[in-house]
């Protein structure tokens, strides 16, 4: 029972980690977002290419926009636009995209394998296992059923987190700590669903 951290030590560690992530990356922690970015590498390459092309052809882009504006609204709107654009927005250049590249998201996800390995090595938990856990085998019977349920569960996790726009880190840790109502709703929903499913498993099968 004492192999894992006491609740408050674990809580402090995880809370500090959430803050650290935000400070070091200027972004909120979100693992399902990293999944999305990693699997959308083709789209990202296309976007980067477009952004670079546009940034290196500032004059052409400006002329094209001007031509479209004239064709759509006529020359009469130009003085009006001129009067309404704040001074800070004039002569603004198109910036090259400075997003987190998908490879960094991949490094983030894969380095968790290293993290899990390091912890297991130093605490003596590391062993090559072909079974998930004793309780899992108890209710699924392990074997083929266990494998199929893992595949189905994983599929639901992947699909659900993308549909909900966040997972236990994105909605749970980041969203809730940023006091976002959406995240409270999402976190309450997935926790309650998981509790209902697990209690049913415990009562009906175990």
């Amino acid at each position: 029972m004492n192999e894992y951290l006491t609740w408050w030590v674990g809580g402090i560690a995880l809370g500090v980690f959430t803050i650290l992530f935000r400070l070091l990356t200027s972004r909120t922690l979100g693992v399902s977002g990293s999944w999305k970015k990693m699997l959308a590498w083709r789209e990202e390459r296309l976007q980067d290419k477009t952004a670079t092309t546009m940034a290196s052809n500032q004059g052409d882009v400006a002329s094209a926009l001007m031509a479209e504006t004239l064709a759509e609204f006529g020359a009469d709107v130009l003085p009006q636009v001129e009067a309404n654009v704040p001074a800070t927005h004039k002569h603004q250049k198109i910036a090259e995209a400075k997003n987190i590249p998908w490879t960094a998201h991949m490094v983030f996800l894969l380095s968790m394998v290293l993290g899990g390995f390091l912890w297991a090595m130093f605490t003596g938990h590391f062993s090559i296992q072909t079974e998930l856990s004793s309780i899992y085998n108890q209710w699924t019977g392990g074997g083929l059923t266990g494998g199929l349920l893992l595949l189905m569960g994983g599929f639901m996790v992947g699909l659900g987190t993308q549909m909900a726009g966040g997972c236990s880190s994105g909605h749970g840790l980041s969203g809730c700590s940023n006091l976002a109502p959406t995240s409270f709703a999402a976190t309450a929903t997935y926790f309650m669903t998981a509790v209902i499913v697990s209690v049913i498993i415990k009562v009906m099968i175990l």
Binding site: W35, M152, G153, Q162, C167, T193, A194
Partner: peptide, 18 residues
């Protein structure tokens, strides 16, 4: 709906995306 699917899946396989 996404959160419901995610919660169901997490209870089955015991894993979230990380």
């Amino acid at each position: 709906p996404g959160s419901i699917i995610f919660g169901y899946g997490w209870a089955l396989c015991g894993a979230c995306p990380s």
